[in-house]
Amino acid sequence: MGRDYSGEGVRVDTVKECDMPRTGFAVRGLNPSTAMAGLDDSVPLGRVVQPEDIDDVVLLLASDAARYMCSMLLEVNGRKALV
Rank of each mutant, 00 (worst) to 15 (best):
A62V: 12
E8V: 00
F25R: 00
D56S: 13
G2A: 10
D41A: 15
I54Y: 07
D13M: 12
A26G: 08
A62S: 08
V10I: 15
D13Y: 01
L39H: 11
Y5Q: 04
V83E: 13
G9D: 01
E52V: 09
V10H: 07
L82S: 15
D41P: 03
L73D: 15
R47K: 11
L82N: 15
V27I: 10
D41I: 01
L39I: 13
L59P: 02
P32G: 07
M1P: 04
K80M: 14
I54P: 12
L45S: 10
M20H: 12
L73G: 07
A26W: 03
V27K: 00
A37M: 06
L30Q: 13
P21S: 11
P32A: 08
Q50H: 08
M1K: 04
P51F: 03
D64I: 02
L82K: 14
T34P: 03
C18V: 14
V76P: 01
G7D: 13
L39T: 09
L74W: 11
G38V: 02
F25T: 03
V27S: 00
L61N: 02
R67G: 05
G7M: 13
Y68W: 11
R79N: 14
V15Q: 07
M36W: 05
D53W: 02
I54T: 04
R28M: 11
L61G: 01
K16D: 12
E75H: 12
V76I: 12
E17S: 13
G38A: 14
R22C: 08
G2D: 14
